[in-house]
Write a protein that binds this DNA or RNA. Structure first.
Length: 769
DNA sequence: AAAAAAT
């Protein structure tokens, strides 16, 4: 019988116990919201491959009629800080505060995750929740807030004590008349109590949960009690219910408080010690079974330590306490078996060294050395088919049905190496077909190596694709899933912002390819619900971005969890030496491929810089956004993205927004609004800068100039896709011209610069392009 | 600054 009553031996979390883990996040402020079924349905919309799926989201337009909202100017007049910003986009969910914040045992051993901003009590209270009593009176305020108004004829008597008695006054005002037979019982104190006596006269009845406070002085404090009732300090909304032990049980109490209820099928094991073992029980709870080769180290305390033991498991008894060791992050395994250094390998082998292309530039935006790559040209690919590259007939047929009849250059370059099992670095221009370049051969490899275990329940995933944003992960899934299904393999997305239940269920049924963002992957690993130990192919899309600060360490921890010696594929349009850390650590002799003639000079994008006055920015954007074609506007901050989309709507331009302050269902829906064409203007932060494919974006406006040349390339790559023409307009302050020129130089872009002011004919011309 | 984690 498995022992569920205790956490795993050692009492510590098995995953991610390094101090480096505290370096995560901390900047983003939005609590993650959940998806509804509708939202999930909505994501089945467009596909980057051009395969149309029926748009199902025509029920709820995002941009409401303009006159239903206060004007932009009105809102400007208000103190923006007190405005319940973004309204339903950050839904007020007070029920969270009332729920007992009981730490669940499965998380119990982890240190408090104070780095998560959404629950970080240090951040300023959001005006939309707590302090709304400061808002000005509105015309539809209820009368009770309006105590100064003159008495009206239909005022209730109690407010009108001075009026003379009237014949139809109720008895209580007429105390002198003789008692009558039909007097209400309250005045008939001597009659025996009746079963339906009103409770107010029944002082002995037990207190009820909805008793008003003044009658029920013994009831426990509630979060919204007024301070006077709550001894020392004023009650706060985030008071922990744990201090509220006496309150009556509520129907939605969490099981921890309800020890006697019968076990339910979805009880988590820790709460349900007696249930029979299940096939997917976590090994740690299953102390009696024989050790298996893939046991995770921390659960297997008897075997001798190995040199490549993961440090994250190292708080076992025989190892020194973590605090006594050096503060190396988990990935820095100096003591593991020596490995060939990426830079030290024999020169002249393609992919083994970097050419020195020294560049000068500001520290914050450096062009790193290029990876020396095998170069392929479009003409090299002429006449080559996917089948020639080694893909099976099912996959080839599926690709054709998705519109990919013949391989693009980057696909022709990388597919054979991926099929051969080699590690691969691939650089292909934005919109050049990188998803298929890794997705198709990945599926082929899994099919060849399925070991007869396909469709086995609970099989562990054998491939992992990591992406920097949820939208990109879901988009990749839309491309890879049909390819995988064509050969009977299953995919699932593991991303945040949505309930994990469906994801966990899919994993329990058995999945071959996981397409994910890092955070949820780590979360499910910590929970023991995702096991990457069988992952033999790992893809990092936007790999250089995944090596940026904030992404690198989670990615390293996740890669540590995958099968040792597994294949690694790194793809990006701006792949450079920034990935060297990961390459050295995880890749062996990678093949590096890029496509020739794909610099911006040969691009179909017209780059323009407008030198403007800061105060004219909104007006100019509004004139630029009036064009017929789809327009994508980038801002530096979430707040400005939101403000800008409001401003455009007020100007009569249907617009929506995409940024991290929106819950995931809004994010998904708003992006869908643009792809479906119901809105032509999307204002976004850099969440939309990389990888996101929307057909026929004709104009990209950079309302705030990018800080990095790579960001410029990725943002502008949202237009001019698949050979179509597009325009990129970057708005900068006049005194930033020099800095912008330097950035354009690093991006190797020639752009015309013009002074611009509202009303200029040039703006209308740019809009019409 | 933004992004990525709360069933």
């Amino acid at each position: 019988m498995p022992n569920y009553s205790k956490p795993p031996a050692g009492g510590k979390k098995p995953y991610k116990s390094t101090p480096s883990s505290s370096a995560r996040g901390g900047a983003s402020g939005a609590p993650k919201k959940r998806w509804t079924g509708d939202d999930r349905a909505a994501r089945t919309g467009d596909r980057s491959t051009g395969l149309a799926r029926p748009a199902r989201d025509d029920r709820r337009p995002d941009w409401s009629p303009r006159d239903s909202k206060p004007s932009y100017q009105d809102r400007q007049a208000q103190d923006r800080g007190t405005r319940p910003s973004y309204g339903d986009r950050k839904p007020d969910r007070p029920s969270y505060g009332d729920r007992p914040a009981v730490e669940r045992p499965s998380y119990g051993d982890r240190p408090a995750r104070t780095e998560r901003p959404a629950y970080n009590s240090d951040r300023p209270a959001r005006p939309s929740y707590g302090d709304r009593n400061e808002r000005p009176a509105r015309s539809n305020d209820r009368p009770s807030y309006n105590s100064d108004r003159p008495a009206r004829s239909n005022d209730r008597p109690s407010y009108n004590a001075d009026r003379p008695a009237r014949s139809n006054d109720r008895p209580s005002y007429n105390s002198d008349r003789p008692a009558r037979s039909n007097d209400r019982p309250a005045y008939n104190a001597d009659r025996p109590a009746r079963s339906n006596d009103r409770p107010a006269y029944n002082a002995d009845r037990p207190a009820r949960s909805n008793d008003r406070p003044s009658y029920n002085s013994d009831r426990p404090a509630r979060s919204n009690d007024r301070p006077a009732y709550n001894s020392d300090r004023p009650a706060r909304s985030n008071d922990r219910p744990a201090y509220n032990a006496d309150r009556p049980a509520r129907s939605n109490d969490r099981p921890a408080y309800n020890a006697d209820r019968p076990a339910r099928s979805n009880d988590r094991p820790a709460y349900n010690a007696d249930r029979p073992a299940r096939s997917n029980d976590r090994p740690a709870y299953n102390a009696d079974r024989p050790a298996r080769s893939n046991d995770r180290p921390s659960y297997n305390s008897d075997r001798p330590a190995r040199s490549n033991d993961r440090p994250s498991y190292s708080d076992r008894a025989e190892r020194p306490a973590y605090s006594a060791r050096t503060e190396r992050p988990s990935y820095d395994r100096a003591d593991r078996a020596p490995r060939r250094d990426f830079d030290d390998r024999a020169p002249k082998r393609e992919s083994d060294y970097y050419t020195a292309r020294t560049t000068t530039g500001p520290v914050e935006d450096v062009v790193l050395e290029r990876l020396e790559a095998a170069v392929i040209t479009a003409t090299d690919v002429e006449g080559v088919s996917f089948a020639d590259l080694g893909l099976g007939s099912n996959i080839v047929r599926q690709l054709a049905s998705m519109g990919a009849e013949a391989p693009f250059a980057i696909q022709a370059a990388t597919i054979p190496d991926v099929l051969s099992g080699r590690d691969v670095l691939g650089r292909g221009k934005t919109g050049s077909g990188k998803t298929i370049a890794f997705g198709a051969p990945l599926v082929e490899r899994l099919m060849e190596n399925n070991g007869g275990k396909d469709r086995q329940m609970g099989r562990k995933p054998r491939a992992l694709i990591l992406a920097p944003t949820r939208e990109l992960a879901m988009q990749i899934d839309r491309t890879v899933q049909p390819i995988a299904r064509s050969v009977g393999l299953f995919t699932t997305t593991i991303v945040g912002g949505v309930p994990q239940f469906k994801q966990v269920s899919a994993l329990q049924r058995g999945v071959d390819i996981v397409i994910a963002t890092p955070g949820r992957v780590e979360d499910l690993i910590e929970q023991g619900r995702l096991d990457l130990s069988n992952v033999i192919v790992t893809v990092l899309d936007e790999a250089d971005h995944m090596c940026d600060l904030g992404f690198l360490e989670p990615v390293q921890r996740i890669l540590q969890e995958t099968s040792k010696g597994g294949q690694k594929l790194l793809f990006s349009a701006t792949l450079d030496k920034g990935v060297a850390t990961l390459v050295k650590q995880f890749l062996v002799d990678p093949a590096v491929h890029e496509v020739a003639g794909e610099d911006q000079a040969s691009s179909t994008i017209d780059h323009r810089v407008l030198l403007i006055e800061q105060r004219d920015k909104r007006e100019i954007i509004q004139e630029l956004a009036r064009g017929e074609g789809k327009t994508l506007i980038f801002t530096r901050t979430r707040a400005f993205a939101e403000e800008m989309s409001d401003y455009l709507e007020d100007a009569g331009i249907p617009a929506t927004s995409l940024h991290g302050d929106l819950n995931q269902s809004r994010r998904t829906r708003n992006l869908q609004l643009l792809t479906s064409g119901r809105v032509n203007v999307l204002v976004a932060t850099d969440v939309a800068a990389r990888g996101i494919h929307v057909d026929d974006i004709t104009l990209v406006i950079q309302a705030d100039a990018p800080e990095e040349y790579k960001t410029y390339l990725h943002r502008s790559g949202r237009t001019g896709r698949a050979g179509k023409v597009g325009t990129v307009v970057t708005l900068i302050n006049r005194n930033r011209r020099r800095k912008m020129d330097e950035l354009l130089g690093r991006a190797e872009i020639d752009a015309r610069s013009d002074f611009a002011a509202p009303g200029d004919a040039m703006l209308a011309e740019l809009a019409a392009l």
